[in-house]
Simulated scan of single mutants.
Amino acid sequence: MENLTLGVNDSECYSIDSSSRRRPFLFFYLAIIITAIPSNAFFLYVSWQHIRQKNGLGVYLFNLALSDLTFTIGFSLWLDFLWRGVWVHGGYVCVLSVYFLFTNFYTSDVLLCCIAIDRYLAVVHPLKYTSLRKVGTAAAVSVAIWVLVVSFNVITITWEDTYQENNKLCFDLFFPVSDNLARANVARFILGFIVPSLLMVFSNWRICKAVKSNQATEEQERKRISKLLTVFLLSLLFCFGPIHVMMLLSTVVEDCRNLAWFLYPYKISIAISTLNCLADPLLYCFITRTGKENVNQVVLFFQVKKRSRYEDVV
């Protein structure tokens, strides 16, 4: 486990990481960034095509891709942190990077929840709430999500809980947590994880129930829809569940001398949460029918372009 060093006043502790322990995280995050940037750029393009077709769902997909892409680009600073072992970019950049981290967390899971609700309205109430599924409504909801998430982060993320200037550490677990951070972690667990998860479970359950009761839907199509909804729900639980559980546990830990067991699982949970940037475009592009069609169109385009180049050379 990582070493623990007590602070000057023996009231806080922080981790000292060797380069060998940092290296696996460095390679993992590097692989995430290299893969996520082009996939989310493509995801952004595909979702924009949905918006051009006046599809309200495309607005949620576009904002989801935008959130993942901006976070992935900004996340490159953490590679430098892992490489050096210290944060050299100052407190303002540290706090800003943590803003990006939590903004991506909660815009992503709320937008996934909106996508599930949009599908619920389309399948269970196809003619009743059509105004809620228009592009204008989806755009207003998306703007409200960004404003609420950014406002919540401004209130809950503080310099004291994020940056340790003496040891040049950024977001690297200072214990014991402050009362402000403890309240923020509880709020994040309830509002940022439990509520979206319950709404997604409800939406998926009603969609599956409606599909099964619809005699016109073929059995193969029912299985495909059920599998798709299950994968999206498991993705949310897998990416955001561990980090929120660890944040909640951090609020009850008081003695920093007994925290050696806590640090490494916490850092692993953060690493798992970053998989969300890769999961969103992959789930859409390779599991949904529309996503597969878009991928096939792009592949066909490059095949035709490559063939024309070859013919020109010949």
Rank of each mutant, 00 (worst) to 15 (best):
S269R: 06
Y163H: 07
S250L: 05
W205T: 08
A31R: 05
L169Y: 09
V313H: 10
C277G: 00
F202V: 14
F25Q: 03
D10I: 08
R52W: 03
H125M: 01
D255C: 06
A182I: 00
V177I: 06
T70K: 09
G7E: 03
C285G: 03
L199F: 06
R23Y: 11
L82E: 02
L64G: 02
V304I: 11
Q220F: 13
V211C: 00
V211W: 14
A260S: 11
W205I: 06
L181W: 04
E221I: 15
R23D: 07
K212L: 11
F25D: 00
L96Y: 00
R188E: 00
Y163R: 04
L198M: 13
C208E: 11
L111T: 08
F25K: 02
E219L: 15
N204I: 01
I194C: 09
L127T: 15
T251S: 00
F105E: 01
F71Q: 06
A279S: 11
D10T: 09
T35P: 00
L112S: 02
A279T: 03
V141T: 06
S131Y: 08
T162P: 01
D172G: 02
R21I: 15
R183C: 07
Y266H: 09
L61V: 04
C114G: 02
W159D: 13
N104S: 12
C208F: 11
R224Q: 08
T162D: 06
G136R: 12
D17G: 06
V245Y: 01
I117R: 05
S308N: 11
L112C: 07
M1Y: 14
L148M: 13
N3W: 00
